[in-house]
Design a protein around this nucleic acid. Sequence first.
DNA 1: CTGAAAGCGCTTACAG
DNA 2: CTGAAAGCGCTTACAG
Lengths: 338, 338
Amino acid sequence: MSVSIKDIAKISGVSTATVSRALSDPTRVSEKTRQAIMEVVEKHGYRVNSHARSLRRQRADAILALLPDLGNPFFSVILSGIELELQDHGMDLLVADSRATERTGRSVFNHLHASRVDGVICLDGTPTDAARAELAEPDVAERVVFACEWMAEGDFPYVRSDNRGGGALAVDHLVGLGHRDIAFLRGPVDNILTEEREAGVREALAKHGLGLSDTRVGGNDFTLEAGFEAAEWIAGLSPRPTAVICTSDQIAIGLMSGLRERGLSVPDDVSVVGFDDIASAAYVTPSLTTIRQDRIGLGRAAAQVMLKRIGVGKAPEACVCTLPVSLMTRHSTAAPKA
Amino acid sequence: MSVSIKDIAKISGVSTATVSRALSDPTRVSEKTRQAIMEVVEKHGYRVNSHARSLRRQRADAILALLPDLGNPFFSVILSGIELELQDHGMDLLVADSRATERTGRSVFNHLHASRVDGVICLDGTPTDAARAELAEPDVAERVVFACEWMAEGDFPYVRSDNRGGGALAVDHLVGLGHRDIAFLRGPVDNILTEEREAGVREALAKHGLGLSDTRVGGNDFTLEAGFEAAEWIAGLSPRPTAVICTSDQIAIGLMSGLRERGLSVPDDVSVVGFDDIASAAYVTPSLTTIRQDRIGLGRAAAQVMLKRIGVGKAPEACVCTLPVSLMTRHSTAAPKA
DNA sequence: CTGAAAGCGCTTACAG
DNA sequence: CTGAAAGCGCTTACAG
């Protein structure tokens, strides 16, 4: 085993209590002994054993981020925002894939129950029934915050983008270009993001005296594949809508690829708007007009709300819950051809 | 506080030792008492406190994945492979961004020193000097494995793709199509992946009686931006190479976007080959011919090697170190125009 | 098969 | 400012 606080105490000629104080609360130790201790600590490369500290303090100094799909690149930037913020507070970041965890039969809140983490940032808005049941327990509930996605029921703190506003932004842009017949490509059934964005689209459309008929709504996933497959449906519509709002950039990119295969040009035949502004949105052909989410900000804010919730660090000025989105106008949208 | 092993013992009318055994090593307890204990455990939702267990067992049951850039979506799939494998062994996954950590002045191996994790899977092949120094310490060294990237010096276990073979595959494909003048777009200076891929390209070119002159080598990063900017250089070359091999898909996608802006067509004017096969490679226009890496496999294998190293689970059949890559032929490559 | 007891490495009232 | 001592919640030889 490596060197422990006892060793440092013995070598320094003080008690372990003093070593502990020198490390955690230097003001409570005389400058002279502190320096002597620190020298010994330095020399022997001593580090506080995290399990002993956590056990004693009843605090893990760690947070779990629970993602619906760890392999989905959309989340990586959010994750890095979370980590940045946690790092500033000396907290560690654990990650788990909720779908994968469910398959093992273990509870996704196991880490919480086992005291391995102080809280969980849940990026998964559609937990299983078992997970929902656990979320109803007070000692779980008070340690959870939702980020990005969230649950319609319950009353959890959350951080999210202004999804409705984003939908409206897309509509305003297209209507401004002269579009009157606009279709909407949804994400997965029951996904809250897709529902909010659709609501924003409908509201904005109504404001312009337009509507969204059932024949103009399709799609069932956030993926490239889903977008690609939706192209067949869009291409076959008669009359064909002149613009499509997609609830993710992946859908939009897949859609553009599919439309092209069918000889349709974007934006000449169909304008396409995405959602997210992932890195490649600016580099596909044509570059994608989309609604930008501040993913780093989302991650940082989620971590801040979490830290505030568990009483670490000072509370942020305001508990920012809904982050603004913005329209990135690029080349996948244009006025409809007369 | 929640219920502890003492509570369970008292309610069950046995000692804590017996409860502990019932949970960890059921065969050492009579079936009857085991059942009685499990019922109490179930009823009260008892979970072993992870810090107490780890402190006592001197084992964290957790691994740290150290990434050069948490926000880079390339790593998300590898991460999910790591998590899948760890989950099968009841191990937890911590993640940290090595660049961000360095900025805090903390050691990237702090988790290891503090016993918070049993090992670290390092996906960063260019650690700082400070990190290198720590890697030289035996008690750090024996708990590290490199994945994807690795260090030229040192003698660490690693899991990687066949980067040389990938470079060769790209060359063989292009030469087979009739290309004779091929350029190469590098990643960051000193990055080992880019060096290996370039070596593979050079070897294969030599095999075909061709070479790679300095005037045909450019690029300095794996990013979309770097690829986009390289387009200017490629477009200005005279004679212009008929094909470009990129050391990442991001570069390739950025390059294609830049070439298009300059009125050059892919693959009619220039064929482009990427590396990685990220999800969007099949959906950009034209779809990207690339070298596929098995990222899930990379992650799983890295976790397996790690687990073997720290003596958890059974050793894999063979310690797979270099995973095969494959050519995905799509529409960004074609025979050069006469 | 089971229990009493020691101990993993810390922190923190309590005293002085 | 400093120390002795208790205790966080487990696991594991050691005995029986």
